[in-house]
Design a protein around this nucleic acid. Structure first.
Lengths: 220, 220, 220, 220
DNA sequence: CATGAATGAGACTTCATTCAT
DNA sequence: AATGAATGAAGTCTCATTCAT
């Protein structure tokens, strides 16, 4: 929930409820909202359901958030905060780059599979700003989320463990992309998946790619 | 399905017009429907808007398709058929595996950037939908779409050009994942992108991964 | 179908189709219309379905009838003609009143059970003129239908076989009412029913009532 | 059900308001709904009209009832409850069977003439509806409604005042049938009717039938 | 004559949101 | 602060009916 980053969580209030009870309400709404948005997606989630699950009236939701959109943005921010914290806290910075990569991959898969990937879908599909619903708000979060990985890749390049002939941006896609793809597959087909094994295999593949043992990148 | 496979596209509606002007209408609806669904996603797309853009009454939409869902399924089928045809027709089967991979990667990126990735999002986010909307219909299409790639990977493994110690499923994610990730990025940020260059770099990275020059896959 | 009563069947045409083919079309529409209206009731029946079952276009229905309402009126008229003919043709006028009553009861039950009572429901529920749908047209038909019964009752009263202290109108309700009630029951609950047995019992009951062996009618 | 049995009437809708103004609204909706459904029948009645007559927005209707069907079912339940209560409260159980029958007949005719038989038509014609609309829900109500009569007939048979050679089911039709038939007639033709006189005559007729003074029932 | 095609009118329903209490 | 109640706006879908061909 990150009471530490109120700037992200609170900016959508009508008035300024600051009491303990208020903060609890907000936390509850974020929690339940996360569940519902994750399960249903933005459009199919309803304020009614969120209120019902929490056992409060629908109007209460609007007492604390400007509306559905604002609640959803807050939910996602809150969730990102949580993920980012998890990522950063456990990263074994003293170990080799490859081990750190392994940690990031494994944690990413774990987090999303546990959360149900619903939020992932939410961000991915509602993140498109065109539809005017959510939009913009997410880029900074995405950036913060990928920061540890970018940093890792940069350090790897600096130390020579990772090839330097390819842009960081592309490297990042090569790491994050397969993970998301795997997750979609899991969600779509409900296949049980051994996270540890898949992580290990995936890291091995990625490591080959990142090392660039296949010769110079460009024009093959 | 394209105009040649009316069984999927043509309505099983009350009246099932089947020729000449009819087929044109269906093509129009598929075209406009593709645009709107791509821009808005399933929920935010409206039959009203589709009808308006085409300059017909809303009832006309329902003369040709059972409803919004059916139209959307038809739109996606139609679009998949198009992509699949493109993929298969140009694949240089006589060239080395790596060159074929390059073709697939490049074509994928091109097609989706031109089409605007909206449909990609549509399939990805609405495709899960145990909830209600689309679902099921897409797995076979997904399978047909990835068939050429899977075939290529299998042939690569058979010829020894691609490592055999990792499952095809994982290899597929390693190839498709980065592409989708790149596309999301491009769409979200509207960055202009040099498809040729990115394709080349990406293939280089992937090729390293697929060759497996980094040592045995498991437990690294 | 009664080609003999064109005034009832034909008055709803757009133009005046008089050819053999036209008459066949009209007969077909009346037949299929009867089926559909009987199965679905007026509101839930659709011109689409009628056309489809006949294998013609929807517009054809409107070539021969001013519209749904006109078709329905024609269907009911046509059906009444048929029933009335059946009733009158078989009535054993030379036999005792009670035997004739038995014939009428048995025939009524048979006809409606075979036809499915759907049309009965149609007349009963759509006959209410308030709803502006069908209305008025039916009273004359009802009168023609009940004519044989009324005649029978009058003859019974004249001959002294039926009590004279109660109005014909009430006697009629006492005869027709139970039959309709039984039919509704059968339709509602799908109970198989032995028409012969029920007819016999019902006639026995009715005969008691009509004879008036219970003493003077009024004020009991 | 009347206001005392909210489980049937109160909505299981998103929001389930349950007191004070709420209950009044529900009563209002049941009242207006009864009017409109009675006048128009299920299909021709519209939620729009119900809302308008009550001077509320259409959405309000759906705040209190799941939908048109649910409202209609509630309307009918409510109405049945009312009728049944009326029937049972006044029945002179200490008087002879014939007098009790007279009461039931008279009350039935009165109630339906006052209510306008529209609901009778509604139940009769929409009640069949395997097709789609209402259905099922009504059989229990029908049963409760006819219970007093069935009980009366059974007691009459037990005491020897009513013939035993005919099934209760048939006897019931002989009593209820003529009443419904009379009512249809009255409604269709708008004839003013002297309920007291008709009741008396009808009971006299029915009593003859029920006593069975005409000889053994079967095979006449 | 038959029909393919199109549609206007209107139905039911959902939902985020507001406001007086 | 919380909510009961109400609703405007919008959406999907149905169907009888028309008209040019």
């Amino acid at each position: 929930m990150s009471a530490e980053t109120p700037s992200t969580v609170h900016p959508t209030h009508r008035r300024a409820p600051a009491s303990a009870k208020s903060e609890q309400r907000i936390r509850d709404l974020l929690r339940v909202g996360r569940e519902v948005f994750a399960e249903k997606g933005y459009e199919r989630a309803t304020t009614t359901e969120i209120a019902q699950r929490l056992g409060v009236s629908e109007a209460t939701v609007f007492t604390y958030f400007h509306g559905k959109r604002a609640l959803c943005v807050a939910v996602i921010s809150d969730w990102y905060d949580e993920i980012i914290a998890t990522m950063q806290d456990g990263l074994p910075r003293e170990q080799p780059i490859r081990a750190q990569l392994h940690y990031l991959v494994q944690t990413h898969l774990r987090v999303f599979l546990v959360q149900g990937t619903g939020l992932c879908a939410l961000v991915l599909s509602e993140g498109r700003s065109k539809g005017q619903a959510l939009g913009e708000s997410f880029l900074p979060l995405q950036r913060r989320y990928t920061a540890p990985l970018m940093d890792l890749l940069a350090r790897g390049q600096a130390s020579g463990e990772i090839r330097r002939d390819v842009s960081l941006r592309l490297l990042r896609s090569v790491v994050l992309g397969p993970m998301e793809h795997l997750l979609w597959e899991v969600v779509a087909q409900d296949k049980p998946t051994d996270i540890e094994a898949v992580s290990a295999d995936l890291v091995a593949l990625l490591w080959s790619a990142l090392q660039g043992t296949g010769g110079p990148a460009s024009r093959g």
